[in-house]
Design a protein around this nucleic acid. Sequence first.
DNA 1: CCCGAAAACGAACATATGTTCGTTTAGCAG
DNA 2: CTGCTAAACGAACATATGTTCGTTTTCGGG
Lengths: 198, 198
Amino acid sequence: MARITGSSGERTAAAIRQAALRLIHEQGFAAMNLRELAAAVGISPASLYNHMTTKQGLLFDLMLEHMTALLEQTDAALAAAGPEPMARLKAFIGHHVLYHLERKREVYIANFELRALDPSNAARIIGMRHEYEARLTGLLEEAAAAGLLRLGDARITAFAMLAMLTGICTWYRPDGRLSPPELVALHTRLALEGVLRD
Amino acid sequence: MARITGSSGERTAAAIRQAALRLIHEQGFAAMNLRELAAAVGISPASLYNHMTTKQGLLFDLMLEHMTALLEQTDAALAAAGPEPMARLKAFIGHHVLYHLERKREVYIANFELRALDPSNAARIIGMRHEYEARLTGLLEEAAAAGLLRLGDARITAFAMLAMLTGICTWYRPDGRLSPPELVALHTRLALEGVLRD
DNA sequence: CCCGAAAACGAACATATGTTCGTTTAGCAG
DNA sequence: CTGCTAAACGAACATATGTTCGTTTTCGGG
């Protein structure tokens, strides 16, 4: 087989994914056209098809890779946190915030371009998202069962926490005023304790 | 002037706005095409242009009407709440939740289709959004100055609260398990007190 | 050195889409 | 009833866009 070691194939494919993340994040999936994507990579529109099946397939691959990484890294963070419910909950929040700061474009796309997916592709991504939500719901119920939380409704609470923690990536800039650890601390306290003075 | 009283003009224009809200919410602005919009209203594509300037202008009008209503109704709710800082903060949260339950499509569009606006149109909507955010930031600072809140960072806290409270309209269904007042109560507590047991 | 395959290209196809134009329809004022 | 104008229409234009096809380039293994 020719063109294996150091093949430009994988480099080009990676460049396409990076450029696609940027363009979809800036303009939205429907508004991004493949001629612009090809130009950003520096190849012709036809050459894109050496590295992807269709435009739809490209979007699905981006989302799938993101959701897979999110679930895997979350489980790793929870495994490292040990068995104590509150430590596990804080580990989830901390990982979520850091992951969303690092990969805000992927997150934004996975959250807001679900409409653009074919039904069967969408079903698969939605399933993974439900799994992620279930991780948090489970942690909340664990902690509530241990008497550590006061839980009105586990599902709605999980949704509200995720919305708050995911919102970060709509305004976060790496050169912003607050550092990632500061943002983790601030959001952990907001999620757990709210704003009321004791 | 002919065709004034009971003219079908305003009815058609309203039908266009309603159909556009639905289609943009379902598919996104870029993915919605005017032939589909016209079919949903029951007129020809050409006739749309008797009621709007361009597709872009239609989006802007929808957003502008929403942001105007949001700001006006918010101010009315605050005026009705009186001077006490915590009462004002709760009034803001309550109004925000109810408005977002009632007009979830407008909210979704105004939040996620900013990319689709021309720069000058976008600037105007963004300005109004900043004004809205400033309302909450101001309320938080008022309450903190009165010693009622423990505030890490007013701006970030406002962003986090808005993200949490706005997230409702990504999953809310009018026939859902919880009623609007229940959702207001739940989210007010989450925002102010978090989930930790006292 | 040279062959084979990966990966690039130009060009074209088929279709979708925002918008315009000239014309026709229809309801209210006089 | 009649004339005026808002508001509808069919048809077309110009362009954008996802994708395919046949060909050419280019690298690495033998």
